[in-house]
Structure formats: C-alpha cells, structure tokens
Computed example of a mutant assay.
Amino acid sequence: MIIDLTTKCKMELIEPWLRRQENKHIAMGHVGTHLDTYLKSQIPLEYFKRRGVLVNTTAFSEKREINKNDIDLENIKKGDFVIFRTDRIKKVYGTKEYFENHPQLSHELIKELCHRKVSFIGIDTAGIRQGEEHTPADKLCEDNNIYVIENLSNLDKITSKDFLVYTMWIDDKEATGLKCKVICEELI
C-alpha cells in the first residue's frame, strides 16, 4: 500500500501569516510538509529511500514531552526515518490551535536519535521543539546529518511495522525550509 504523508495546505489559512513575513520566499519553505535546513548542508541523495519506524505517541504526547523511555530504541537503526505520530495534525493545519503548545521531543530523545545516526526525524506537528528551542534543535540534528521533517499527515493510515519512506525535496540555496513530498510504502 502506498500512503501520501504530505500535508495539503489551505492557502486561505496561510495567507494572513504570509503577508506579515518579511521574506516570503523563505517563509513559504516552512509551509506544509517540509524539512528544515538552517545550516544549508547538502542532503545525501541516498536519503531519498529509508526504512521507516513509526512511534505512536497519541496516548500521551499532548500531556508531556516524548522521551526516550517512550520508544523501543533497539528497533531504531542507523539511517532510519523515525516518524512520531501525535495526531496534532488532525487539528486543522494552519490554525492557531495547531501551532500552540504542540507536542515535542525531549532534549534527551533528540540527542539519542543523533547518537543512533538516523537520517530523518518526522513528526505531525510544527516541529520537534517549540518556540525559541525549535531552530537550535533542528540545527543540532542537521549538524549530525539528520533532517527534521515537519507537518506530516495520514500517519494513522500506516498499519504495517515494515515500510519504506520516500522523500523528495528541491534544493534551494536561500531557503531554510525545503518543501517535501513524503510517501510511505508498506511492505506487508
């Protein structure tokens, strides 16, 4: 089964925010499903196809940070695309409710994923950390050749433990956010 994990944006929700942005080109890179690349590193082309690992945190992620004790770390291997399902994306993307106090990963978990050398950390929220901690967390990951992909959708449709994730992005020398198309292929 093929599942599109890319969030479709309702521009009428984005346009008021976009009008307030100084650099609309940079801002548009951070709309919908995208990966953050603040350090402007070259993403290896082999990252296009990765083994996926889904971590379902829907039972608690709105109440507290997601920490390393919440996941089976032994299942996470070098090069994996680790996806965190919080179901925040079900609060309409682009609304104030979606962005405020969204679920986030603990600092300890982020460091552990860096240690394990995964390729991507995906999440169905506006980021792996909130507010002023957003960009430093993304930079820490990127400095470890890991890219954060935000605003994933349809994670509830992944039913297999064995799946591949295909990620397509367009390089941009200026943008700090690169729009992505993310597709899951279930193997069983």
Rank of each mutant, 00 (worst) to 15 (best):
W17Y: 14
G52W: 03
I149C: 07
I89E: 10
C184G: 06
D138G: 12
S61P: 13
E74A: 13
F163L: 00
P16H: 08
L113E: 02
I170Q: 10
S106Y: 07
Q130E: 12
N56Q: 01
D143P: 02
G79K: 12
S160V: 00
L39M: 09
Q104S: 13
M168D: 11
K78A: 06
L155C: 08
I110Y: 04
D143M: 01
A126N: 11
K77R: 15
I89C: 10
E97L: 09
N154T: 03
I26P: 01
K181Q: 12
E12V: 05
D80R: 05
L164V: 04
L152K: 02
D143L: 02
H102V: 00
L45I: 10
K40A: 01
G127W: 05
S153T: 15
T176A: 08
T159H: 11
K91H: 05
K161Q: 11
K49T: 09
Q21K: 15
F120I: 13
E100D: 14
I3T: 06
L187D: 01
T33E: 02
T176V: 12
K157I: 00
Q130I: 10
G94A: 09
E133G: 00
H134Y: 09
C184A: 14
E65G: 03
D87L: 08
M11I: 01
F99W: 07
C141P: 08
V53C: 12
I183Q: 07
E185Q: 10
H134P: 01
K117E: 14
F99G: 04
L164Q: 11
A137K: 07
V165K: 05
L13Y: 08
H107S: 09
Q104R: 14
G177D: 05
D124H: 15
E132T: 09
A126W: 08
G122A: 02
I76Y: 09
D156V: 02
H134L: 14
R116W: 07
K161P: 00
S119T: 05
E62Y: 14
I188T: 15
